[in-house]
């Protein structure tokens, strides 16, 4: 996959400093030619133009206890802070990707993560409408907690596919939305879940 065509190497900010999913995303983007800055999620005003922002609030863990309000506010604050540094439509626009969880469809063990995930989808769709005229796309990758060796908890939504979802699968999906060829796709949620989203009425 190629990355946004700007005179210099395009830059992306990836939040989630201690998340293995964010690490896989950063590595995938670097191998596709992006200059990647890892961040904590605290709003930063980038010094140079930013073509990609990946918000990874860490909802893909087996624990609950997420703070939905805080997670959504952080997304709004981040977008607000990078906004002046996003290239305009005529300069090629920019891409924002939010990493969310399949839990947003409902999951008994993680109501907080579910609420945060659902709220992120609603937020992303609204930001997509707000930023569409400026050439900025906003999309969501909703995943299941990725396989980490063989140590995954039993009570996770289970994939229908023979292969379990890995952090690399999620990273590839994020990279797809960040690509310069994905400019006509905005406000969308793509589940990287091995089909685990399919039995919920909210998934379509």
């Amino acid at each position: 996959m190629t990355s946004l065509q700007h005179p210099e190497q395009p830059a992306a900010i990836v939040t989630g400093a201690d998340s293995p999913v964010a690490a896989a995303i950063a590595s995938r983007l670097r191998s596709s030619g992006w200059r990647v800055e890892r961040a904590t999620g605290t709003p930063v005003v980038p010094k140079a133009p930013i073509s990609g922002l990946v918000y990874e609030p860490g909802l893909l863990a087996s624990a609950d206890g997420a703070r939905p309000g805080q997670i959504v506010d952080q997304l709004f604050d981040l977008v607000e802070s990078v906004r002046p540094r996003l290239p305009t439509s005529s300069e090629g626009g920019a891409r924002i990707v939010v990493v969310s969880s399949r839990d947003g469809l409902g999951w008994a063990d993680r109501p907080h993560a579910a609420a945060a995930s659902g709220a992120l989808v609603a937020a992303a769709r609204s930001l997509a409408l707000q930023l569409a005229p400026a050439g900025v796309t906003v999309n969501v990758v909703a995943a299941v907690p990725p396989e980490a060796g063989t140590s995954r908890a039993a009570a996770e939504p289970s994939e229908l596919t023979p292969d379990a979802v890995t952090a690399e699968d999620i990273a590839r999906t994020v990279a797809f939305f960040l690509d310069d060829r994905s400019g006509y796709i905005t406000g969308q949620v793509l589940y990287c879940c091995g089909g685990a989203s399919l039995l919920s009425s909210l998934s379509v």
Binding site: P162, A164, T173, G187, Y191
Partner: peptide, 20 residues
């Protein structure tokens, strides 16, 4: 081949028209 864990999805390529 790498898309092996993505199935059953509906992806809109619509410039946001599906949003409103």
């Amino acid at each position: 081949p790498d898309a092996r864990t993505i199935t059953g999805q509906v992806l809109y390529v619509c410039g946001g028209k599906s949003l409103y």
